[in-house]
């Protein structure tokens, strides 16, 4: 099987701002046609990572290669094949129309009006901007402005797209439209994307792989399927004949995270083990308290569960 082509290679990236570490030795790769998500709490280093890859920020250490080039030396060549949306709706000129914004941003990338005519029409149609394409953006909702900003990121037909919070503050309908555009673009055009977002559902539906980062370090670097698989092997729904006693509860909590499955049923627990191998310990704890298992099943975790669990696990881990 052919190895996928690497379009972004980050190795040991480090960045501090006046003594505060923002990115602490991050390494990862992104491949052609892949949508790679970066998830993390506020201040975890997502945007710094993305901007370092774009060459907007000078990093302190490590190396970055984009499309095989060094952004410190070949930034201009990289930017010819790159599009980005960094501040959502604020990334476009509100006093201009979507058509004018598209023409301007194509122009500063060296493209003429004739070069982009067809592409502009396609993007306007794909994002449902036909009816408003000649109206000033200031008259629009945030969603329309954000869609225009996204269209501008696409206008030079980039090989690589960097999107910082592309769905921030958008309603479900527009989020779905953006998701569909990104998926189709990766699938049909082989476009690669680096996306940061807090929107778990969006990330789950759009990304092939996610990096989970916290305090500038990578906690996980896996495909969504592999993450789900890893978590489903250690996440259980446990229905018992009664609530566990205090001692049993303590034993269970030593094995992982234990919570009532829903607020009414204290006999039904959701147990996320620290490691899949601890399942024997779980059985021992139940047996020691004389509890009977009425039902036991694995639970498919969604990205939000996985993300929260990883952040919690990291907080519990000894420094």
């Amino acid at each position: 099987m052919n190895r996928p082509e690497t379009v972004i290679a980050v190795d040991g990236l480090r960045k501090s701002y006046r003594g505060t570490v923002a990115v602490d030795g991050i390494s990862f790769e992104a491949y052609r046609g892949e949508i790679l998500g970066i998830l993390g709490p506020n201040g975890s280093g997502k945007t710094t990572t993305l901007k370092s890859v774009l060459g907007l920020i000078f990093y302190d250490g490590g190396s970055v290669r984009v499309l095989g080039l060094d952004p410190r030396k070949d930034r201009k060549r990289i930017l010819r094949s790159t599009g980005a949306m960094l501040e959502g709706a604020r990334n476009v000129y509100w006093q201009l129309s979507p058509d004018e914004n598209l023409e301007y941003f194509a122009g500063i990338k060296g493209l003429s009006r004739r070069d982009i005519r067809e592409r502009r029409n396609t993007l306007v149609a794909q994002l449902g901007l036909e009816d408003v394409r000649r109206k000033e953006l200031r008259e629009f909702s945030n969603g329309m402005k954000q869609k225009t900003a996204l269209a501008c990121a696409f206008i030079n037909d980039p090989e690589l797209l960097m999107l910082d919070e592309p769905t921030l503050g958008l309603d479900v309908e527009i989020t779905i439209q953006i998701r569909d555009l990104l998926r189709a673009s990766a699938r049909d055009d082989g476009r690669s994307m680096l996306v940061t977002s807090h929107d778990m559902d969006f990330m789950e539906s759009v990304c092939d792989r996610v990096l989970i980062i916290k305090k500038g370090k990578i906690l996980s670097h896996e495909t969504l399927d592999s993450l789900r698989c890893r978590f489903s092997r250690k996440t259980f729904r446990l229905e018992l004949d009664r609530s566990p006693g205090a001692e049993a509860m303590l034993m269970l909590k030593n094995l992982g995270d234990v919570q009532p499955f829903d607020s009414d049923a204290s006999c039904t627990l959701k147990v996320v083990l620290k490691d899949a191998g601890l399942v024997y310990g779980l059985m021992d704890a139940l047996r020691a308290d004389g509890l009977r298992i009425m039902d036991l099943s694995t639970v498919e975790s969604d990205l939000e569960d996985i993300f929260l669990q990883m952040i919690r696990d990291d907080a519990d881990a000894p420094a």
Binding site: L54, L56, L79, T82, R90, Y93, K109, G110
Partner: peptide, 18 residues
């Protein structure tokens, strides 16, 4: 103020030219 400054820095010609 508008939030478009970084986009100008993403021009392959560089912001100085712009």
């Amino acid at each position: 103020e508008r939030g478009t400054l970084e986009q100008l820095y993403l021009s392959p010609y560089g912001a100085e030219v712009i």
